[in-house]
Design a protein around this nucleic acid. Structure first.
Lengths: 164, 164
DNA sequence: CGTCGTCGTTCCGTAAACGGAACAGCCGGT
DNA sequence: ACCGGCTGTTCCGTTTACGGAACGACGACG
């Protein structure tokens, strides 16, 4: 935490002012003598430009399963300027589902389901998620997308390309 | 958060006892009327068997306006390992809307609406999007989220932090 | 050697998060 | 209808995290 601040070359006083927290708070936070609220912690991490998870010792495991594909309508809504991320809005119609070939190595797919039930992932071991669920896998193998049941599925699809 | 508990079939009272926190605390936590300390949050998530990152959400990104009902619920679904992107699933309830303070300079917000009509963006010049629409703005100024009409809004929220 | 500016820590009154208890609502059994 | 046990919410006194101010330490400058 302190390291994050120091490698940016800003003082405790400055960071406290920028983040809108007291110096006493930030000092105690860096020394581990306080038990911060989320609000406080976020104010500081946001100012440092890192997500909360960057300062939490949390495991944040990555249950990487492989494969998945879209049998759906993809609407590209955003591509990052340096093209390492692509965000899509996805609709999967009821039916037999669709297959997607393997992407380049290192590509990760993130799917968040908003309505319906989606079965997606590697063709040999697909995952299932209902509304609110989130799936993740590395898409360097063939993968599939299918709506479970009679309802269409709406979801967001985020493609993450490896840093070049 | 509440969903995590309910899908395990345990009551609020039971979880509070197992996690060693007060029922009032857990109740307020699930309803977004508290700003929990890390200690409290960890006690609960550890008992649920999920990492802290599984429930990190709204209060941090859109700090709960004290005394007011929270109208936007954020569920973090994914944080990139190098911490330049955060993907959220967002629900905005009908009502007066919710304000979010300015983020650090250079942060861009991307919102894709899945259902309902969302009015969001800088407080002085908000944008509107219906299902399928996409909004984007730089979030270094205060911005707001509000559902237009009587229907709740479901959307994805992508936060892009500047490359360091 | 004094003075100034900034560093990070500590003190302290205030605001709020905390746990326990009391509460109303709902069900199932008698 | 009555009760006992459960649900989740609200009330309230205690604890504690909060920010502002005061503090000593250090370095730069005259």
């Amino acid at each position: 935490m302190r390291a994050l601040r120091e490698e940016r070359g800003i003082s405790l006083s400055t960071l406290a002012r920028l983040a809108g927290v007291g110096k006493a708070t930030l000092s105690g936070l860096e020394n581990g003598t306080r038990n911060p609220t989320l609000e406080t912690l976020y104010a500081v991490t946001a100012q440092l430009g890192v997500p909360l998870t960057a300062v939490l010792s949390g495991p944040a495991e990555t249950p990487t399963v492989r494969g998945a594909a879209v049998s759906a309508t993809l609407l590209e809504v955003f591509t990052d300027s340096d093209a390492t991320y692509e965000l899509y809005r996805m609709r999967v119609a009821p039916g037999p589902g669709q297959l997607s070939p393997a992407h380049q190595a290192g590509v990760t797919e993130h799917v968040t389901v908003f309505s319906g039930v989606l079965r997606a992932g590697p063709v040999d071991a697909p995952l299932t998620a209902a509304a609110g669920g989130h799936l993740r896998w590395t898409s360097d193998v063939p993968h599939s997308y299918a709506a479970v049941g009679d309802d269409e599925v709406w979801a967001s699809l985020l493609l993450r390309y490896p840093r070049r």
